[in-house]
Design a protein around this nucleic acid. Sequence first.
DNA 1: AATTTATTTTAGATTTGTCTAAAATTTATA
DNA 2: TATAAATTTTAGACAAATCTAAAATAAATT
Lengths: 221, 221
Amino acid sequence: MYTETEENYLKAIYKIAQKQGESSINTKSIAEEMGTSAASVTDMIKRLSEKSLLQYEKYYGVSLTKEGQKIAVHLLRKHRLWEVFLHDKLNFTWVEVHEVAEQLEHVKSDLLIEKLDAFLGHPKFDPHGDPIPNSNGSFTFRNQIPLSNIREKNIRIHVLAVKQHDSSFLKHLDDLKIKPGEVFEIIQFTDYDKSMKLLTKNGDQIVITHKVADAILVRPQ
Amino acid sequence: MYTETEENYLKAIYKIAQKQGESSINTKSIAEEMGTSAASVTDMIKRLSEKSLLQYEKYYGVSLTKEGQKIAVHLLRKHRLWEVFLHDKLNFTWVEVHEVAEQLEHVKSDLLIEKLDAFLGHPKFDPHGDPIPNSNGSFTFRNQIPLSNIREKNIRIHVLAVKQHDSSFLKHLDDLKIKPGEVFEIIQFTDYDKSMKLLTKNGDQIVITHKVADAILVRPQ
DNA sequence: AATTTATTTTAGATTTGTCTAAAATTTATA
DNA sequence: TATAAATTTTAGACAAATCTAAAATAAATT
Ligand SMILES: [Mn+2]
Ligand SMILES: [Mn+2]
Ligand SMILES: [Mn+2]
Ligand SMILES: [Mn+2]
């Protein structure tokens, strides 16, 4: 088995690869994601390369191997299932779940995670709307676009997910009473600052900036 | 906060102290409990002593301070609550729970453990019948004696707990269909080998040896 | 009381994961 | 294309947790 630190590096590299879309990940971005020094990253990269979890070309960055990806995705699965547990069963808020899931994801027991999955009713998405890979590592695909992309008024908009997970953003959404599962419609676009006014299910009107609308993923219809 | 290893040492020392009833714990017994060398124990003892988690007199063993005990008891609380979760909610057997709880007990979040406790309905005992300390560290006391101590026939005997937790013993009890919560009566004592014959609730007759009867804790009546 | 045996500690080494500072290499800029 | 800037690697050090082997001390035995 791999150490908690090794797992965290693999997860960090996977995340960066997802974000940038490219396969080659440089040392500095890993150092930033991990909150550590470039020198430490180089050390760890060598070890993970030894173990065939990533491919490493000196001075030109790394990319995960199939095995490295598999471990990263399995970690995501565990992380997100624990988030669902904390949110749905223990009544944690979606702001609180992440920090605890960061620890729980490293508990090693396949039986545990399969039983947890069943106990939760095989959820497909976590409290932030992120997809939960199944035990084979495949994600459920869903059509979703940033709220900021929508141009039509008076259609029902379903909130599916959020792009950012930092607590300041999530708390702001809490204030606006926006979270995955909510439905609203757009009643006004303001061209000047690209803000929009929304009408929620219970009749409230809220204004959100473009910055916020860009981080909310929705299903239009 | 303390490292996982430090926590495990404190737990080991607490366990040994409970078992022997004495306060002074020697290096060798800690090494055995931890599955490590005496030299490593000496190293760790010094560190824990530095941190005022135990009192250490060179060559004469250690004893936990109030703070050290507090940490050990809190770990027991977490361990046993997780065992209840795994058993009651995820349908783990009482043989399987311990290994996973050994990992889960080190997750650091007071909110988590209080919410878990509430979710489980504030259980007072774990699947092996061991008492779960409350958040102040106090245990529920219960009158219980080894089954081997009982001399009366034809009275209802309630199984409360087991003294041993190794899987070979627990699996043997599974075969006999004995576990905490079960009720039976003794229908025969055999003086020669101190074995006894029991009559279970559903009419089965089972024979258990003295060795086994000694590790089963019951409430007579 | 002297000696043997058991236990405990020390000394020195190893692995993991980290750091800072310096050297090497790549990338950007003039 | 030469120089400057940014990035990456190497070198050397450190803390945590472990080991083995040797030395020190305590406990048991004759
Ligand atoms: Mn998360
Ligand atoms: Mn999430
Ligand atoms: Mn246990
Ligand atoms: Mn138990």
